[in-house]
Simulated scan of single mutants.
Amino acid sequence: QEVKKYMPPCFVEKRNSNGKTPRELFTEEHTELLTKAESWMKSMAKSCMIVSTLIATEVFTAAFSIPHGDDEKNCNPIRNAIIFIIFAISDATALISSSISILIFLSMLVIARYAEDDFFKSLPLKLIYGLVTLFISIISMMVAFSSAFFITYSNSIKWVPIFVSVLALAPITLFTFLLFPLWSDVVYSAYFCRSIFRPSKHVLYYVDG
């Protein structure tokens, strides 16, 4: 598409010796690549949708399993109220973001046609937003998990919620380390790699008529 913008209009639909236009020749030579890309995209969407579904199930269950302190007589009601608000907000955020992620990846599996034009912008955007919402749901789930431990154990065994909160950083760090390179590559290919087709000087074409 970017190369097409810099071609003389008369060359866009010009046919070669085999009677094929540049677009038809490009499609024919990249059929195998299109098939592999479709297979990879569907596999990625299925895996991420499974993770999002598990997160949504867990945080939905946690919403109806409200944590409470183990020692109500010695608890700090103000502190517990603040932590409970954090728990409620993070749990709701995890549920909403994971649900959005499920819908995005489901649309990639059911609605997407996987035509050439879909790989240009539609599918990369869905993958980008799907991974972002999945990442948000993981962070929110870990925050809700840690705050639940603070509410339950902070009055008796104070080192337990602190230790659990530190461990909760592991999944977030691992997810970032494993999927951020992929996410950044998709963002770069969808938004920034087109800049290589934007020369600093305009090119003048001369077509001998």
Rank of each mutant, 00 (worst) to 15 (best):
V3H: 04
Y6M: 01
M7A: 13
K14Q: 15
N16T: 00
S17P: 05
S17Y: 11
K20C: 09
T21M: 07
L25W: 02
L25V: 04
E28P: 02
H30V: 07
L33A: 12
K36Q: 13
A37P: 03
M41A: 11
S43I: 03
M44G: 01
A45G: 04
K46T: 12
I50K: 09
I50N: 00
I50A: 06
S52G: 01
S52D: 06
T53E: 01
A56Q: 12
V59K: 00
F60C: 04
S65V: 10
I66K: 11
P67D: 01
P67E: 06
D71Q: 05
D71I: 03
P77V: 11
I78W: 08
A81H: 10
A81I: 09
I82R: 09
I83Q: 08
I83N: 06
I86F: 12
I86E: 11
A92Y: 13
T93P: 00
T93N: 14
L95C: 07
S97V: 07
S98R: 11
I100G: 01
S101D: 03
L103H: 06
I111L: 01
A115W: 05
D117G: 03
F120A: 13
F120T: 15
I128E: 00
Y129W: 15
L131H: 14
L134Q: 05
M141R: 09
M141C: 12
V143H: 07
F145C: 10
S147T: 07
S147K: 05
A148E: 08
T152I: 14
V164S: 00
A168D: 02
L169T: 05
L169S: 03
I172M: 12
F175T: 11
P181S: 10
L182E: 07
S184K: 15
V186P: 08
V186G: 03
A190Y: 02
F192I: 10
F192C: 04
C193F: 04
I196V: 13
H202S: 06
V203M: 02
V203Q: 05
L204Q: 06
V207I: 13
V207N: 04
V207P: 02
